[in-house]
Design a protein around this nucleic acid. Structure first.
Lengths: 347, 347
DNA sequence: CGTAGCACTCACCCCGGTAGAGTGCCAAAG
DNA sequence: CTTTGGCACTCTACCGGGGTGAGTGCTACG
């Protein structure tokens, strides 16, 4: 009764995880010994399986069913057993084609990415857009809509447009707004947004000293327009109904829980944000997410980035019983393509 | 065996529909005769129920269950039996408060509306934004992003912002763009979008005659930017997971179908568009939608409008077994509030 | 025309029996 | 000491049957 993970145990764990991924049914000793002709009798496999269960890699739903992998089992599989199935040229091409028609603006690209992820993985695609803070100032514009109400439009270098209507209280003359537009566009262009914020604050202080009330107000406007947006609105999800086809979600209560999570998004924001802080591919399995509502689910994520650093993350969410060997390359390649498209925009 | 709908039959139909709405269980003759003490024995009620079934207002799931309303039954109930339960002052206030923080821009207002609808009805809220064609030109802006790529921003009178990146092929000088911006903003401001389109076409023709290639190109840009957007993107849905709580969706297959519809949206676009063409409250019950995927569901919609006419529609989607008496006033009042908020924007 | 009574019909639940899959353990073989 | 074959055991899933209860349809009567 070895308590170590020798070569044989690993092979058997691998076989079980892969069988279970393929069939969604508890795997028994016999099927392992037969289908993976490794010259071992069912009895031997049974012994090993008992060990693996003792070590926490497998669990049995009930006494006389086969075994299914635990979260720990999946983790071990993903970390040390998994052999990625690289994408075929035609698959890579298919991914690339997806973006051909897109207008290369970041939100367009991300929207295509989320569609592509869900279609290819047959699970739910999930993408988190960069925080506005991470963007670079390109252009600002004030459009007076009515006395006391101004629409502020802000464009980032990558062509993202943010806009906000601000109640100014008093009526700002169009002339002042125009002058201010020109000034800001000249001075701030090309600066990262946090720098822009600082500068605005400085200029406001100066305007105050000079008792230039009008200018102070317009600067305040700009500051408001650049204020951070709703975190949850930055998450795109698509293909959630794919997950409904999975047998593990035949249970209505679990579906409900999962859809609450999709609708609420905040837990996804949390995970994608954690992923963003890391680098490259990351995998959250089941309870590792520490969000019990998505127990039984895994998240495969990757970061997308430009040469100025990581700017966001994207991935796939599906049942823990997921063909990681295929999903990981899909997520990985999508992240690369997205990075590349955005990089081109940066010039 | 009367084949007419006399007062008594109507009362009984009403009782059955309301009991079924409240309980989600087939209602039997006894419970009708008891709970609605109308001085009739179960046997009499049975006779009437048999008639109602014969006329197609009721159906029995199987021989010895009670009866449930058919689509036709709901239709009759809604059209001639239903007594609306008007909103209490506090409920109206609660709806209004929802919009207090919104920035009154149309998409903000609609986003609040869809949230409010789903929260109040406890079903899914659904809102369709106006078509761009219905809006009035307010402002256009060109932001050169890179040589050969221009971001075109278009603002409607209500402060909606649409933007699009256009590949121009050749490099348009900033000067030309600026002149053109000024010109277009002067000439087009306040015109409805279809008029703007026509005018653009005229001006392009003229530029062509005058061999003013640059100007012709910029005009073409503007035209492209005003092109219609994706229909499906105009639909907001929220609170879909509310529907999962309904007992009629305990069946996984139906949930799947429904979620496919929510994700795909095109069928909803169709219904909301039909609703928009009508006036005021409209109710689609079950198969009346002629979309079999949402069988068993009803849609309560209303149009929102300004003094210039109907611009969009909003409503609630839930099971046909829906407390119409409460849902209809909610939808109605929401549409009024939205109309009013937008009207204020129009000045 | 309304009502009471009665036989009938299903869906639902609980039961017990069975088949099948898979395990755990043990003793024998390599 | 490891592997294997054998065997008893366990537990689930599946089936068929009887009982129960709700609700109906029909008929006869006031």
């Amino acid at each position: 009764m070895t308590i170590s993970m020798n070569e044989r145990s690993r092979k058997i764990l691998e076989a079980i995880v892969e069988d279970y991924i393929a069939s969604a049914e508890p795997v028994g000793s016999k099927s392992v010994s037969c289908r993976h002709q490794m010259g071992l009798s069912p009895a031997t496999v049974r012994n090993v399986m008992a060990d693996l269960e003792g070590m926490g890699y497998l669990a049995s739903p009930h006494a006389s069913a086969g075994r299914i992998p635990t979260d720990k089992g999946y983790r071990f599989y993903v970390d040390t057993l998994l052999q990625l199935r690289p994408l075929k040229a035609e698959e890579r091409e298919r991914i690339e084609r997806q973006y051909a028609s897109s207008d290369r603006r970041i939100d367009e690209v991300l929207r295509e990415a989320v569609k592509s992820l869900s279609r290819l993985s047959r699970y739910a695609g999930i993408v988190m857009a960069p925080r506005v803070e991470a963007t670079v100032f390109r252009h600002i514009d004030f459009v007076p809509l009515a006395p006391g109400r101004v629409l502020v439009i802000f464009v980032s270098r990558t062509g993202e447009v943010q806009n906000k209507i601000i109640e100014t209280g008093i009526n700002l003359p169009a002339k002042t707004l125009e002058q201010m537009t020109n000034y800001l566009n000249r001075v701030m262009s090309g600066l990262p947004l946090d720098t822009v914020r600082e500068k605005l604050a400085q200029e406001m202080a100066q305007a105050k000293r000079e008792h230039d009330d009008l200018q102070q107000r317009v600067l305040a406007l700009s500051g408001q327009a650049l204020a951070g947006e709703d975190e949850n609105a930055r998450v795109y999800i698509e293909g959630t109904s794919n997950i409904l086809d999975q047998p593990e979600f035949a249970d209505v209560e679990r579906m409900r829980q999962l859809y609450r999570v999709f609708e609420q998004k905040s837990q996804l924001v949390d995970l994608l944000d954690r992923s963003r802080r890391a680098h490259g591919i990351q995998i959250f399995i089941g309870n590792e997410t520490s969000h019990s509502a998505i127990a039984g689910c895994s998240l495969v994520t990757a970061t997308y980035e430009t040469r100025e650093g990581t700017i966001g993350s994207l991935g796939v969410i599906g049942p823990s019983r997921m063909p990681y060997a295929q999903v990981i390359p899909i997520v990985d390649y999508t992240a690369r393509i997205v990075s590349q498209l955005l990089e081109e925009e940066y010039q």
